Structure formats: structure tokens, C-alpha cells
Amino acid sequence: MGRLTTHILDTERGRPASGVEIDLIALRAEGPTVVGSAVTNADGRTDAPILEGEAFVPGEYELHFKVGLYLEAGGRSLPQPKFLDTIVVRFGLSSASEHYHVPLLLSANGYSTYRGS
């Protein structure tokens, strides 16, 4: 069975980003639908896959990483409005039997992502 996992690393501080809310949105013909939500733990990961089992269906998705509060809570001096608040990563799942991992490497002024393992 396929599954989708994620984690967030604060590359500016060299540690996992804990306490970040994440929503998983399925982009369906009838409109965007929230199909999963999680909060990162002390290791910057979700406690369980954000999508797995029968809910894991190939298609287009978005992960919404709500990083604004995390960045503020870290004592950084941020401009208003924040340069980064919610980061949206759109991607496709083409196989119902693979493990997809979408990590986020984060700093207050930028981010990157890739298909991990």
C-alpha cells in the first residue's frame, strides 16, 4: 500500500521544525478537499503518514505547511507581512503502491523541497 510522509528541517537553525501544522489537500474535479492534517513532532515529522491505506489514491495534491507561527515563535525578527507564512507544495502521486516522501527544508527567507525516500 502507498503512503505519503513529510518532515520539516529548519536549515537556518540546524534542527527539526516542531509544532508546524500541515494540511493535505486533494485537487479533485469537484474542488480542493482537505484529506489529511497533522502537526510536526519534536523530530520535525508527523507521528503517522499523512496519507495511507485506502485513502491513498493517485492524483494531484498540495501540502500546506503553515510555517508563519513557527518562524515567529523562534524569536526571529520578521517583517509584516511575513515573507513566508503558508508554503504550498503541489505534487502528483502516480502510483498507489509507492512511498512518497515530501520534505521541506526551511529558513525564514526561503525553502526547498524534493521527492525523498
Rank of each mutant, 00 (worst) to 15 (best):
A42H: 05
G44M: 10
I8R: 06
G74T: 05
T46V: 14
I22A: 09
P49N: 09
V39T: 14
L27M: 15
P49I: 02
E60T: 14
P32A: 11
G74S: 12
G36E: 00
L51A: 02
L69V: 08
V34F: 04
R28G: 01
H7V: 08
L51P: 00
T6Q: 01
G19W: 12
A48E: 15
E21L: 08
A48L: 13
A17S: 13
G44C: 06
L63R: 09
R13L: 08
P16M: 15
I22T: 05
G59V: 13
I50A: 07
E12D: 06
G36F: 00
V57N: 10
G36N: 01
A55G: 09
E30R: 05
L27S: 14
G31V: 11
P32N: 13
L9A: 10
G53I: 01
P16L: 12
A29S: 05
Y70I: 05
I22N: 05
V34K: 14
F65R: 05
A55N: 11
G19A: 13
S18R: 07
D10V: 07
T6S: 06
F56Q: 02
I22V: 14
A73N: 15
L27H: 14
D47E: 13
I25Y: 06
S18F: 02
T46H: 08
K66H: 15
E62Q: 12
A48G: 03
Y70P: 02
R28A: 11
E30G: 03
A26G: 01
R28Q: 10
D10E: 13
I50V: 10
G31P: 00
T6A: 03
G68W: 06
P16V: 04
G74L: 04
L63Q: 02
E12F: 10
H64E: 07
A73G: 14
L63A: 11
S18N: 14
I25H: 09
I50R: 00
E30Q: 09
Y70K: 02
R13Q: 10
S37I: 02
G74H: 08
P32G: 02
L71N: 01
D43W: 08
T11S: 09
H64T: 02
V39Y: 03
V39L: 04
P49A: 05
E60L: 11
H7Y: 15
F65S: 00
T33D: 08
E30F: 01
V20D: 12
R13K: 06
V34C: 09
Y61V: 11
G59I: 07
N41D: 14
N41V: 10
G53A: 08
T33I: 06
V67Y: 01
V35D: 00
L63M: 12
A48Y: 11
P49K: 01
S18D: 05
